[in-house]
Each structure stands twice: as C-alpha cells, then as structure tokens.
C-alpha cells in the first residue's frame, strides 16, 4: 500500500521523536528531584546495546525493553552513588557517565556490529488507523510509541496528583526544607536517578530495536544532550516534553527530506534550529520572574546531610 509523502514524513517523525520522548522524560524526573544528570547520552547508548543484544538473543520485545531499562538503571546507579553519597561534582560525574557509557558500549558492542535485530511488529489501532492521512501517521506504530505517550501521562499524573510526586518535587525545589520535614532527600533522589536511567535506557533501545535495527558505536549521536535541552525547552513538564521531542524529531526528518520538500538551503542550517530554539527557550524561561516555569530550586546542588 502506498502512502503520500506527507503521511510518510509524519510517520517518520514519530519514529524519530520517540527516543527523545523517553530520554527527555528520564532527564525530567531526575531534574524535578533536583538532580542534573549530564550522562543521559551514556545511559541511552548502553540501553541501546543491552536491548539490541537481548533482541538478537531471541527474547521478545517486552523482555528487551526491560533489559535496556535495567542496564540504564545499573549505569545510573554509579552516578547516584558518586553524586549522592560521595558528594562528587554532578556536572563532571555526568560527563564521565557519558564517556564511560559510549566507550563501554563500543567495546562490548563490537561483536554485534553488522547484525540486524528482528523487525518489531506494528500495533495498528483498529478503527483509528483508517482515518485518512493521520491514521497511518499516528495510529499504526510499534507498541513503544504508545508506551512513550502513556509514560508522559503517567509522569504528569505522578508529579501533579500523587503524594510521592509532590514529595519528589519538594526535594527538587528545596532539599533543606524537604529534609527538615523528614523526607529522605538521598533516597528519593536515588530512586529518581534509577527511574531516569531506566527511561533513558528504553529511549536508547528504541533506536536499536525499531528505528534502525542495527547497533553502531556512538549511534545515539548527541540525542542524550538533546534530551537535556528538551527538558528545559519543556519547562520541566511531561507533556511539553512530547511537544518538544516532536519538534526536534520533526526538524531532523524535514532536513532529511529537505530535497523532496523543495528546501534548497544546506541541511546543516536546519539542523542548527533545534539548538538555537533551545537557547531561546533557555533565555525566555530564565529571564522570567521565578515562578511556574522556572527550574527546580535545588537543581544540580549537592545535598550534604549535616550530622
């Protein structure tokens, strides 16, 4: 069955954006707890490799996703230990995490280069997929696409409606106050980092399981950094992460199809757009009076329990 160019492009945008949604949500949950983790890129690629290895070994998709999530969490726990217990500088630790993840995945993944993972079946949503144009574009995807949207909804519910979510936000806004109220700052941040690691791992796995069923070293290609930018762009809101991810994904696809769409400027100029938009978003958010859309108050500040 042939689809129009427009439909194919939207379909491709959804595929390109989904890893960013997962990774962005993974960064978001940590930042809401006051943890700035610059290691998302490393977590993603380790998840990409773990998920891929599991799929090659013949495990079903759901198992591969769990394996990737576990791998992300395991790597993130190193970050948690260093930052939370050993008071290491979070900026440098995150960077170390990225380097380590990229190196480790290249080392362990060299045996998988050139192999292809089995194709993931699409879950076509009956009824909705017959809507002209958008039916194919939005409602005939692999299950992970739907999962990414469900995740965003769950995270929104968790952060705004649940008691645990409110505690997590309290820890992120002012860890000293949260501590004096008797909440375990370290414990909550630890869980947030593990959850974030798992989500980033799934985001990475999406690349190897669905987007390009191959593993290549360094294949995350800066998506982990984009995820961090996304969170700022989204002013720390789960649903806006989806919007931001689709914008970033959209630009990357449009630039690929630029020729077909009759855009004649060099692809690199278009590729710059997401980064420039993010800088603008950073400026707009930061220059506002502290309020609704600003960063969590204790973001990136080391918490030391005074005895």
């Amino acid at each position: 069955m042939e689809y129009g160019l427009f439909t194919s492009i939207i379909h491709a945008i959804v595929i390109a954006s989904t890893p960013l949604v997962f990774a962005g949500l993974g960064a978001l949950i940590q930042e809401r707890a006051g943890v700035l983790n610059l290691g998302i890129e490393g977590l993603m690629i380790v998840g990409a490799l773990a998920g891929f290895a599991s799929a090659l070994a013949g495990y079903p998709l759901i198992v591969s996703v769990f394996v990737a999530a576990f791998a992300g969490s395991a790597l993130a726990s190193i970050f948690a230990l260093l930052v939370l217990r050993l008071y290491a500088n979070p900026v440098a630790t995150g960077l170390a995490l990225t380097l380590f993840g990229l190196g480790l995945s290249a080392l362990a993944g060299s045996q998988y280069v050139g192999q292809a993972a089995p194709q993931v079946a699409e879950w076509i949503i009956p009824g909705l997929n017959h809507i002209p144009v958008i039916g194919r574009a939005f409602f005939s995807h692999d299950p992970l696409v739907y999962l990414s949207i469900v995740m965003a909804g769950t995270m929104w519910w968790f952060l705004t409606k649940s008691r645990a979510g409110l505690i997590l936000r309290a820890v992120g806004e002012n860890h000293s106050s949260a501590h004096s109220l008797g909440f375990s700052v370290i414990g909550i941040r630890f869980l947030a980092i593990l959850t974030g690691g798992a989500l980033a791992g799934i985001g990475g796995a999406y690349l190897t399981l669905v987007q390009t069923p191959l593993f290549v070293e360094g294949m995350t290609a800066g998506r982990g950094w984009i995820a961090l930018a996304l969170v700022v762009f989204a002013s720390w809101r789960p649903f806006r992460v989806i919007a931001g991810a689709y914008l970033f994904g959209g630009v990357s696809i449009v630039q690929l199809h630029g020729q077909a769409l009759g855009i004649s400027i060099a692809a690199q100029w278009l590729s710059m757009l997401p980064y420039l938009v993010t800088i603008c978003a950073l400026v707009i958010i930061a220059s506002r009076v502290k309020g609704e859309n600003s960063a969590p108050g204790s973001l990136g500040i080391t918490f030391k329990e005074s005895k």
Binding site: G42, F100, G103, L107
Partner: peptide
C-alpha cells in the same frame, strides 16, 4: 578492540577521581 575503549579509560578515571576527591 575499538578505539572508543579510550573513553572507557577516561570515564573510569574521571569516576574514580571524583569519587576519591571525597
């Protein structure tokens, strides 16, 4: 082994440096 192994060394070194700076 891949040249990216460099990054494993670098990452490990930075982890340990940050950890031991305590």
């Amino acid at each position: 082994v891949p040249a990216a192994t460099t990054q494993v060394f670098q990452g490990l070194l930075l982890f340990f440096l940050l950890g031991t700076s305590l």
